[in-house]
């Protein structure tokens, strides 16, 4: 699980645009090391260059660790700034939801010894109050014009990281706020982990490290001309079973959007975890590898329902391959697509699942 956390963190570094939590990473060891990464769309040349830069900076073992951190942070702040800004905004949004003390509790109720320990960890002098110091940091984050300054972004990340590390800090900070601070600090967490992992590699492995994108087919756009109600009705009619009425469907599923006059344009893409798993499994099968293999896939996003089903089906087909992915929130997304050349039994299983979802909807409504 520690390894998966690391992979999830590394995946975060590859999310170069806000609102596109799509990166995934994969490490494989068997004497050599291969690092594969993918998004829901092919990487641009500049993004691929950025990934190489990250690894080059991380592996400059002749430089001091501090220098490597600085170089990495500069590259990340430059390339991921939209996402970083959105994480800062999320911290500030929570601050605004809270009362005037901004969700920072008084340290008076904590044992003195613990307060001293926390102060030392955060570099706060004995005469200063922990609470005031945290509040002044949150206030410093607020003015929006600072978001343009890379140095400010770097500072915000580094401080958020050090605030989020001590486990006892949860006694002082509103839990939701702390979660958001920690997410901001994850960038620094990823940098320290990356440098740490690279330092563990023997030099000969470092020299032969493979870092490679696994591109999915480019996303395409399709138009859905029917409403969801029509789709469920048509599905039932086709099977000669009872059709739900629109009223029934709307009573049962109040969140169903009202039909729009215009058509729905959907972007279809192969999700990154499916692309990676397909590639690695294909490689293993071609090599004729039969011993037990564990694939750990780090993701910067939650797994969607269909990816989960896809993975379950792959696991069933290749019982000697264990696939581990850390997050799952079971969202249903539109535009999900099977990887090209998916074996028939896997695509059938995914299709069966989709049919059973529609049947469940129909049953509830009828």
């Amino acid at each position: 699980s520690k390894h998966l956390v690391l992979l999830d963190l590394l995946a975060l570094l590859l999310v170069t645009e806000a609102k596109s939590d799509v990166a995934a990473t994969m490490l494989r060891t068997n004497g050599s090391m291969k690092f594969f990464y993918s998004k829901n769309r092919p990487f641009t040349d500049s993004e691929n260059k950025y990934v190489r830069t990250l690894f080059n900076y991380a592996s400059e073992t002749n430089r001091s660790v501090a220098d490597r951190y600085t170089n990495l942070m500069a590259a990340i702040v430059d390339k991921c700034q939209k996402k970083i800004k959105s994480r800062i905004s999320k911290v500030l949004r929570r601050v605004r939801e809270l009362s005037t003390d901004r969700g920072i509790h008084s340290e008076d109720r904590l044992p003195l010894e613990l307060v001293e320990k926390l102060k030392a960890k955060l570099g706060i002098g004995p005469e200063q109050s922990l609470k005031n110091r945290l509040i002044s940091w949150l206030d410093y984050l607020s003015p929006a014009q600072r978001l343009k300054d890379p140095e400010f972004l770097r500072y915000a990340i580094v401080t958020a990281h050090s605030i989020g590390i001590p486990s006892d800090i949860n006694l002082l900070i509103d839990q939701k706020l702390l979660r958001r601070i920690r997410k901001l600090g994850d960038y620094m967490g990823a940098v320290t982990q990356l440098v740490g992992e690279v330092d563990l590699l023997p030099p000969q492995v470092l020299q032969t490290l493979v870092i490679q994108e696994v591109p999915p087919p480019p996303p395409d756009r399709i138009v859905i001309e029917k409403t969801s109600v029509e789709i469920v009705e048509q599905w039932a009619r086709n099977r000669h079973i009872e059709e739900p009425t629109e009223t029934n469907l709307r009573i049962q599923f109040p969140s169903l959007p009202q039909p729009l006059s215009q058509q729905n344009t959907i972007t279809r893409s192969v999700h990154c975890e499916c692309t990676l798993i397909t590639k690695i499994v294909d490689d293993l099968v071609q090599q004729g590898t039969s011993p037990l293999v564990t694939l750990e896939v780090g993701v910067s996003k939650s797994l969607c329902n269909l990816c989960e089903v896809f993975m379950g089906s792959v696991k069933k087909r290749y019982p000697n391959i264990t696939i581990m992915v850390s997050t799952h929130h079971g969202k249903n997304v539109s535009g999900w697509r099977l990887p090209p050349l998916t074996p028939l039994e896997i695509s059938r299983e995914v299709e069966d699942h989709i049919n059973s979802c529609i049947e469940e909807i129909r049953c509830k409504a009828t």
Partner: peptide, 16 residues
């Protein structure tokens, strides 16, 4: 009548 396509079904599920 042709059955709904997979894309259409995925779309319907995502809305419900």
């Amino acid at each position: 009548e042709v059955p709904p396509t997979l894309d259409e079904m995925i779309f319907a599920i995502s809305q419900i």
